[in-house]
Design a protein around this nucleic acid. Structure first.
Lengths: 384, 384
DNA sequence: TTGAAAGCGCTAACAC
DNA sequence: GTGTTAGCGCTTTCAA
């Protein structure tokens, strides 16, 4: 491929002149413009500014330009300035693909969230999470490649992206017990960091939010508000996140010296209907609880529906808390537990950057605390 | 960099043997393995299968391997098979970056959604949209790069991604009147396709969902259920999507020969509080409407809150419809208008693929119909 | 039908 | 301090 310099030589003009003639700047007269255009045509020149054009324009070698681009301190200030001017004048931008080929990296991070096909496993916080993730990645010069993962935990798409050198590493979320992705990536030595821990089988960098602490926050808050009989709706045992949140509830009750009636505890699938049914059972116990802690916002919404339907007032007759602080919590005035999303993405990207650079800081298992967002569903003080 | 063949030669073994020795297959004896390992060390060989290794293994030239990879029909079946076997044996995968550099493409599509920082502009359907978008893109061998766009309509991040050759094109959504992104991309001749039309100033490929039709569907449905006095809550005039949805309501009422009392129409910001206030005003009119069509689900939720609060029953005393069919609509049993997301992403990707290939089909402005999802908020027939 | 070799745009070891 | 040049892994023209 001909360069800008070739065109300039053929048209017997300087490189700057050739450049301005080609982009059509006014200061080049029509005749020159014509000559340059003909030269470009004769050489089958494709307008595309590369490092060589910059070098020719600045009258230096490509090495010098490369050094300037990469802030190599060897270059004399005067030369550096000349190159910088050339870069500005030509509106030059280094080609990422070429850099990546040379460096054998892509500066891309792969991220897949859990199966969107399953309506129950929707991801209402994805917009926030991805936004923050992309911001953190960009701060390190990386971009996010989102891909699809049709079966939860499947490794095929990960394999594909690694084999074709599409990404330098991955961020995982929704990791389960014995997540096969973790095993696979660990074995293949592919850099990754996760949001959520798996179990103790592998050592890998993760950031997690203390789910036990979240439930405790909810329970402690309710106790502060004067509640003593507090119920729980959670996932059936065997689901990592549910188990943790359930544990937090039990510990907080015990710590406060409050008894737990097993009738106050109900297990529910992640649907409003199911949660409403479970709420009915819980409220049928005698004495019934004056507050219910839920393991997520959907369940809380289901509970609210039942409580509303029997004419009891949320926040007065029965206080309610959710978990995750999804948009719906805000809408219905539901007290909920918020995950610190910006902190999570910051840390998960930092951990991943370390992995990519073959480092593993001593502290690579980070636990963050969630926070309590108090709304009307539990704000009222209970008369004793 | 030394190749696998160099290592094999230095160790005086065949390329396959060297390969197996390096990956540690059992069938290679310890002594050979050692020799190969030493040869690799001496040559500072980094294990990395390239097209040259495949060529050496199969006993052909890299050209032949390249042809086989790219399904060039020139290659004799026997040779092709030999190369295929080599590829399989060595678990070879072409390096995407190198291909991209050669072809001057990235097979990446950029997508940014609107500002997540603004809590009112959350994107509850992002998970579905991105999932479908990524699937469609992958079907064409492309991936999605999600990036951040801190101010609505800003072009800087787009500029950045183009200049550094990060993407081959963009998908835009939430396009506004006179969207500067459209002007910029059109001028720079960067391939893009949008979900949502702007105005008539530029000609570009887009897919949109008929917002007028959506409101009409809601109104017609309510009429079928026996309603005659139907109100509307929409955005204040001047917002593209709101204007269209308002228009659909008016036209449907007119077409049915039903009068519209201007007191039945309220304009609201995109918050529940505001929508609740507007609902109060609408229901204060005499005679008051028996149904309210809302321009999105949030407003409908706000309306519901007010209606609940005054002891009227949704679906019986006042029917209600939303728009967009966000997760919240399902949760609260709200009749809503659903956008055909899978069809949208399919078409927007097809349009973009055409642009990338410098084609523009005659039909590059596609309008889709939304569909009505009937739930309890409007399902009951009204006694006349 | 296959191979040799140039080159995509960039970096960096080595030479001066 | 700066320039020459050999690649990174791949595709593709041209020659055989």
């Amino acid at each position: 491929m001909a360069t800008l310099k070739d065109v300039a030589e053929r048209a017997s003009v300087s490189v700057p002149t050739a450049y301005h003639a080609l982009i059509g700047t006014a200061e080049v007269d029509a005749q020159t413009r014509n000559m340059v255009a003909e030269a470009a045509k004769a050489l089958d020149y494709q307008f595309n500014i590369t490092i060589r054009d910059v070098a020719a324009y600045a009258g230096v070698s490509v090495t010098t330009v490369s050094y300037v681009i990469n802030n190599n301190s060897l270059i004399k200030p005067a030369t550096r300035q000349r190159v910088r001017d050339a870069i500005r004048d030509l509106d030059y931008h280094p080609n990422t693909t070429a850099r990546n080929l040379k460096a054998n990296e892509t500066r891309m991070i792969g991220y897949a969230w859990h199966v969107a096909e399953d309506p129950i496993r929707r991801n209402p916080l994805l917009d926030l999470f991805l936004f923050e993730l992309a911001q953190c990645a960009e701060a390190h010069g990386y971009h996010i490649l989102t891909f699809t993962q049709s079966t939860h935990g499947g490794i095929k798409p990960y394999e594909m992206l690694i084999n074709t050198n599409r990404v330098d590493g991955f961020v995982l979320s929704d990791v389960g017990y014995d997540d096969p992705r973790i095993e696979y990536l660990t074995e293949r030595k592919v850099p990754f960091a996760t949001y959520g821990k798996a179990n103790g089988k592998w050592d890998f960098p993760y950031v997690d939010v203390d789910g036990k602490r979240g439930s405790q926050l909810a329970v402690e808050h309710l106790i502060t508000r004067g509640h003593e009989r507090i119920g729980l709706i959670s996932w059936p045992p065997g689901f990592r996140i549910g188990d943790i949140r359930t544990k937090g509830y039990r510990e907080a009750m015990q710590q406060a010296g409050l008894p737990v009636d097993e009738n106050w505890i109900g297990y529910s699938a992640n649907t409003m209907d199911h949660a409403a049914d479970v709420t009915q059972k819980i409220l049928a116990s005698k004495p019934r609880p004056t507050a219910i802690v839920c393991a997520n916002d959907i369940m809380a919404f289901g509970a609210k529906r039942y409580i509303d339907s029997i004419g009891l007032e949320i926040g007065i007759d029965v206080a309610l808390t959710g978990y995750d602080d999804t948009p719906v919590a805000e809408m219905i005035g539901l007290t909920s537990i918020r995950q610190p999303i910006a902190a999570i993405t910051n840390i998960v990207i930092d951990l991943l950057m370390a992995e990519i650079n073959h480092l593993r800081p001593a502290e690579h298992n980070i636990m963050l605390d969630p926070s309590l967002i108090i709304r009307e569903s539990s704000a009222t003080f209970r008369r004793r």
